[in-house]
Amino acid sequence: MNFGRHISGQFNVELESIRTHVLTMGGLVEQQLSFAMQALHNDDIELARKVVRDDHKVNAMEVSIDEACTRIIAKRQPTAKDLRLIMAIIKTITDLERIGDVATRIARVAIETPSSKDKLFNVSLEPLCRQAVNMLHQVLDAFARMDVDAAATVYKMDDRIDTEYEAVIRQLMTYMMEDPKNIPQILQVMWSARAIERVGDRCQNICEYIIYFVKGKDIRHLGEQSIDDVLR
């Protein structure tokens, strides 16, 4: 990726190293979310425990990248597009770390719901989680290429996640009405569904950071139409 010419060639090396570490962190988070979904669907308690154990790796990567960004700001005093890249990276790793927390939460649900009845409730999360994993994969690909067109496409994928989330909630509400004794377990699944739905929102945030870096336009809180306007 071409960051432009700098007096110090080492500056480009440092920027590329940080960006590569972000992609490594993103790959780990995507794996964590996929493993958590598999553990929930297949009743794989050991895989769920692995997801919980590995959460510290995501946290450590966030801290490491954040420190690297701080050093490069202090040492290089970047301006213009370089500074936008650093700011986009700092915000991106925050969203990635929180997606990692969602994976841990799903894994804990898999560990804490041993009965077959509880597993029935959890099944409703699989299509929602699959869409969230796909959206995360696509936004990481857009970030790797800093592709604003791909970012705009991924941004709109959140509508599908929202629709699936609403369907999950309706299904769980039906379970609650059929047997109120199941309400505590169903509420736990509802909270997990909400956490997964938030993955889509965080992927949208990363799309906004990509557009901010490439176009220099802050489109937060402006919606899909603003993305189309910027890219026109």
Rank of each mutant, 00 (worst) to 15 (best):
S116Q: 13
K117Y: 10
K119W: 05
K119A: 12
L120Y: 11
F121P: 10
F121M: 08
N122V: 00
N122C: 15
N122E: 14
V123K: 15
L125C: 07
E126R: 14
E126C: 11
P127K: 05
P127H: 11
R130T: 13
Q131K: 09
A132Q: 04
V133S: 09
N134E: 13
M135L: 01
L136Q: 09
H137Y: 06
L140G: 00
D141F: 05
A142W: 10
A142N: 09
F143L: 15
A144H: 06
M146N: 08
M146D: 05
D147E: 10
D147R: 06
D149C: 06
A152G: 07
A152K: 12
V154S: 05
V154W: 11
D158R: 07
D159M: 04
R160C: 09
I161W: 00
D162A: 01
D162R: 00
T163G: 07
Y165V: 05
E166Q: 06
A167E: 07
V168Y: 01
V168M: 00
V168R: 06
I169P: 05
I169K: 12
L172P: 06
L172D: 01
M173N: 08
Y175K: 04
M176L: 01
M177V: 14
M177P: 01
E178G: 09
P180W: 07
P180K: 10
P180I: 08
K181T: 15
K181G: 09
N182M: 06
N182G: 14
Q185E: 14
I186H: 04
L187S: 02
Q188E: 13
W191N: 12
W191F: 11
S192A: 12
S192Y: 07
A193G: 15
A195N: 12
I196V: 14
R198H: 05
R198T: 05
V199I: 09
V199H: 10
C203P: 05
Q204R: 15
Q204T: 15
C207E: 08
E208A: 01
Y209C: 03
Y209L: 10
Y212R: 08
F213T: 04
